[in-house]
Design a protein around this nucleic acid. Structure first.
Length: 597
RNA sequence: GGCCCCGUGGUGUAGCGGUCUAACAUGCCACCCUGUCACGGUGGAGAUCAGGGGUUCAAAUCCCCUCGGGGUCGCCA
């Protein structure tokens, strides 16, 4: 080793020791005579003093050192002279008096600051990711990620789980997201696909008798990216045999609670995790991944306004639509501009408009409310009683602002859910130091796909229907609920899982319901159906997204901040410049020809 | 594919029709400096204001297009 100690570990106790350090020049302070260098490695920073009276040659070398040069230094650890200690630095009581040093490598001036926490354009960071990762924020995030994965491995190992790797090149099954494909050289015209998740493989491991499986698995989906979505991401893939829904949920609750306590004890977690039914959640929050750190729940006003003079509302209800709203406390004095901003959000998500009702512009008792205090374009079509009833339904008080959307139920929920999030942000209702985990359960098994004109799986086709709903598969498939569950947290979907079908006949029936011919079923799912003829155990599992968990624990806004080498929004790796063209020879070997488009 | 936001020395920002021959901070280079720690001091280099077109007597500034980046809807079983 070129170093006897790490820079960050030196303390008073090391005084008098002769040490050898290696690292990067974080900062250089040249006093003409003395030169100070803050030497940085992964563990921290320590001050090195180059004194011409101690070593003239060393001082000369230090003269040439610049930021991010890599150097090797030997010298004695000394107590700093009284009054020159630096309490900002964990090593600030001591310094290393250089008696010997070498420049191991030089550095050009970096394209952005390594030693300062200044926001830099993300594309530049991504292009020089290896420099970006030198910055303390990124080092912190990578370290946290390591701790999270290590904790998960230890936790599951202690409970008898086997970590098993599954292949990255598997078979394409063209439902769900688009596959990334890998052309085969040996088999002209045939392709492997990268796994969107190891779903079928982990179920086959259950048939194999593994009983408790997990994997830190890479998953690939060729879909557009988001702040919380990348073309490839990592999930904790987990599957167990002989379990019920509760067994999985209890395990996950224990894991997540212990994880947070282990790596971020200062973060608050609410225990036990609430368990919410999908239908209720949609009704109350308009989304299946609500932020439960604050209230602002949606209220249904359809019955109140059905008979009102306000035609927009009356007609919406009459034609099968819904009228719902939320209450923004203390926002009754919102300016026209502020209201217009909210209106734009609503319209951007498909609402015809947003009706705002200001219950006066100052706090007070709702009993004192009069109609001329109500500011709303609908004010003259509503009675005072109706306004009070609406306010009551939404938990509104004097000085509050009611936000009301009318229309097709799905859109109404989406818009209000977004407005709820927006108002939560504006009013700072969500404690940034809390992770509000919750389980969402009791999902519908199927959803009607308008475009394809057929039923589609809400989760995936291996999800087991609720036992008591199985008869409905033949009569009213839309009413069948399933043993599918999600873990949500702070407006993110963290995990999705289900108890699986382990009966080949029932599985076949589901595939048929989804519109597959027997031939297609055989071709796409033949393996798992065949495996189910050989004693499959009842089983189920779940797959939490590692990137999102680490992002939330790190307090970051995008998963790119917790991935060492992420791709940008256009799925490009700016550092490696991938994807990139390949040679004609490569294409020929793969039996491929590019289309002219 | 739709919508919204952004693009000014290496980096981060200011400037938002004329006073811009583009400012500030930091970084960089040179010199001075033996107790600094975001060291200090003096001097210096560094920007076709993302690219193209238009409006105007005059454009970094207004308009249009393109490119690049971000957010989001669709999409993500």
């Amino acid at each position: 080793m070129l170093k006897s100690h790490s820079c960050g570990e030196l303390r008073k106790g090391n005084v008098g020791e002769k040490v050898t350090l290696a690292g990067w020049v974080d900062r250089r302070r040249d006093h003409g005579g003395l030169i100070f260098i803050d030497l940085r490695d992964r563990e921290g920073t320590v001050q090195v003093v180059f004194n011409p009276e101690v070593s003239p040659s060393c001082h000369g070398t230090a003269n040439d050192m610049r930021s991010e040069y890599v150097i090797n230094v030997s010298g004695e650890v000394a107590l700093r002279p009284p009054g020159t200690e630096n309490s900002q630095l964990s090593t600030g009581d001591v310094e290393v008096i250089a008696s010997d040093c070498t420049i191991l490598s030089v550095s050009e001036t970096p394209p952005f600051y390594i030693n300062q926490e200044i926001e830099v354009e993300e594309s530049l960071r991504l292009r020089y990711r290896y420099l970006d990762l030198r910055r303390s924020r990124m080092l912190r995030n990578l370290t946290l990620r390591h701790q999270v994965v290590k904790f998960i491995r230890d936790f599951l190992d202690a409970r008898g789980f086997l970590e098993i790797e599954t292949p990255i090149m598997i078979k394409s099954t063209p439902e769900g997201a688009r596959d990334y494909l890998v052309p085969s050289r040996v088999h002209p015209g045939k392709f492997y696909a990268l796994p969107q998740s190891p779903q079928q493989l982990k179920q086959l491991l259950m048939v194999a008798g593994v009983e408790k499986y997990f994997q830190i698995a890479h998953c690939f989906r060729d879909e557009d990216t988001r702040a919380d979505r990348q073309p490839e991401h990592t999930q904790l893939d987990l599957e167990m045999s002989f379990v019920t829904e509760d067994d999985i949920l209890n395990l996950m609750e224990e894991l997540l609670t212990a994880l947070v306590l282990a790596v971020k004890p200062e973060i608050k977690v609410i225990k036990p995790f609430p368990r919410l039914a999908y239908d209720d959640t949609m009704e109350r929050f308009g989304t299946d991944k609500p932020d439960l750190r604050f209230g602002l729940e949606l209220g249904d006003l359809s019955d109140i306004v059905a008979g009102s003079e306000f035609a927009v509302f009356r007609d919406t209800v009459a034609s099968g639509g819904r009228v719902k709203g939320i209450c923004a406390p203390g926002c009754g004095g919102y300016s026209r501009n502020q209201l217009e901003e909210l209106n734009k959000i609503a319209q951007g998500l498909g609402a015809r408009g947003l009706l705002t009702v200001a219950l006066g512009d100052a706090p007070g008792s709702l009993n004192d409310l009069t109609l001329d205090m109500v500011k709303s374009v609908a004010a003259r079509y509503l009675t005072l009683e109706q306004v009070k009833e609406i306010a009551g339904r939404l938990g509104g008080d004097m000085g509050d602002l009611l936000l009301i959307v009318a229309g097709e139920p799905k859109m109404v929920n989406k818009v209000l859910s977004e407005l709820r999030t927006e108002m939560g942000r504006r009013l700072e209702l969500a404690d940034p130091n809390t992770l509000a985990f919750a389980f969402i359960q009791d999902f519908p098994l199927l959803r009607w796909d308008e475009e394809l004109g057929r039923w589609d799986s809400e989760h995936h086709p291996f999800t087991a229907p609720k036992d008591e709903h199985i008869p409905l598969l033949d009569t009213e498939p839309g009413k069948v609920h399933s043993k599918h569950y999600d873990i949500v947290c702070n407006n993110y979907e963290l995990a999705s899982g289900s108890i699986r079908i382990h009966d080949s006949e029932l599985q076949h029936k589901i595939f048929s319901l989804l519109g597959y011919s027997d031939e297609e079923i055989q071709q796409r799912f033949g393996t798992i159906l065949e495996a189910f003829h050989y004693g499959p155990p009842p089983h189920g599992g779940i797959a939490p997204g590692i990137d999102r968990i680490v992002m939330l624990l790190a307090g970051e806004e995008t998963i790119r901040e917790v991935i060492a080498f992420p791709k940008n929004q256009s799925a490009v790796d700016l550092m490696l410049d991938a994807p990139s063209p390949v040679t004609e020879e490569q294409l020929t070997e793969l039996h491929l020809r590019l289309r002219n488009e």
